[in-house]
Design a protein around this nucleic acid. Sequence first.
DNA 1: ATTATTCGTGCGCATACTTCTGGTCGAGGA
DNA 2: TCCTCGACCAGAAGTATGCGCACGAATAAT
Lengths: 225, 225
Amino acid sequence: MRILLVEDNQALAEGLSAILKGSGYVVDLVGDGASAEAATAAQGYDLVILDLNLPEMDGLDVLRAMRARQNRSAVMILTARGLPEERVRGLDLGADDYMTKPFDVPEFEARIRVLLRRQAGMRSSVVSHGGVTFDLTSRSFSCNGTPLDIPAREVALLELLFLRMGKVVSKDAIVASLTGFDDDLSANAIEQYVSRLRKRLVPHGLTVKTARGIGYYLEAVGTAS
Amino acid sequence: MRILLVEDNQALAEGLSAILKGSGYVVDLVGDGASAEAATAAQGYDLVILDLNLPEMDGLDVLRAMRARQNRSAVMILTARGLPEERVRGLDLGADDYMTKPFDVPEFEARIRVLLRRQAGMRSSVVSHGGVTFDLTSRSFSCNGTPLDIPAREVALLELLFLRMGKVVSKDAIVASLTGFDDDLSANAIEQYVSRLRKRLVPHGLTVKTARGIGYYLEAVGTAS
DNA sequence: ATTATTCGTGCGCATACTTCTGGTCGAGGA
DNA sequence: TCCTCGACCAGAAGTATGCGCACGAATAAT
């Protein structure tokens, strides 16, 4: 975890830096807006701790510039000025948290943990094989960002195979997974879906292989056994 | 955007609920820990605002249970107790922010905006696709600087699609995001909004594509697959 | 209070997804 | 080699789903 600390007050800077390093973070320290600009442009930080009261360039300008550059780092603002409207501005400019000096050090550390935890946990629940991606939450497939237009029933089947990539799924298991209690499905229907899926998957480098008498499994083309 | 407010003080609950609804959020309100448990288990909320001082079950237990259930909703803790060590505990248990009563309402709103935009994976307060821009602060759309006049319900829908540009949003997710406990929405209503939105978006180079049986997604016209 | 939007539902139509029937192909076994 | 059985495909009928229209109810604006 790499943190950039932007603070012009020498004493405070050293103190915070020591605290952060003590918690096991890698800390870079700069004392003015221009240096902060340069550092954030050059390095990808997980977190930027930003004092607003900087010489020359205002801290909010640094933040604004970062966001304009599409910089995704988490930002915590640290300042002596405690005006509520000032805070609102900072937060709306893209800061993730805002603390007013003097502050409680344990709380400071806790809030940093929160920001870093969030930063790390932003990965969404998706599974990829080759160029194809499956989003568990929306139950939809996409290829290079563009959604694949596949009928619901085929999605259900593909999902089953996709999540067990390379493993054979028995026909019974497929039927059980696609139907509820009351309704049933002829074995032929499944073969039908498989057939359609095969055609659909050709451009995306996937094939449905058949395990005769047992079931089906998914495979990336060119990965012949 | 759907928010769960957990607060037992009737007056405060109504007040906050009014503020949030005024900002265009869908708000569900519960008054005790058990209800909060049930609600978070049943529904996916974008944000949970949690008072610690609850009858029967402590707010922190609710939070702990949520996280144990892998619930990823953002959580803001709200309390009268201001002990720093108390805050640290809350934050380390998986809360994303912590405010002490009494608090400044504009700052409260700003922090909520922060949590929601971070939840959506956004680092700054405006998102653009093509010529259209969405301002998360005012929750309004504009095209080349001129605001687009869109009804509230359609804004809510467009916001959902816009923030997940190109990704399929399931119809269920749309309904969940647009309705609270008491009211419900027919599937037809959504199709209706989509229909209206489509007409509105034509001049601005955006189209709502439909993933039959699954949901909808937004796409820039001319970016056909 | 009156008017103008906005909101939500029911209905009919069109589309395309599902499912089955029946027939051809290919793999293994006798 | 031939025979049998499962796998695959094509076509067609049935059916669910999405779409737009039009109308009444709710809400906001004047």
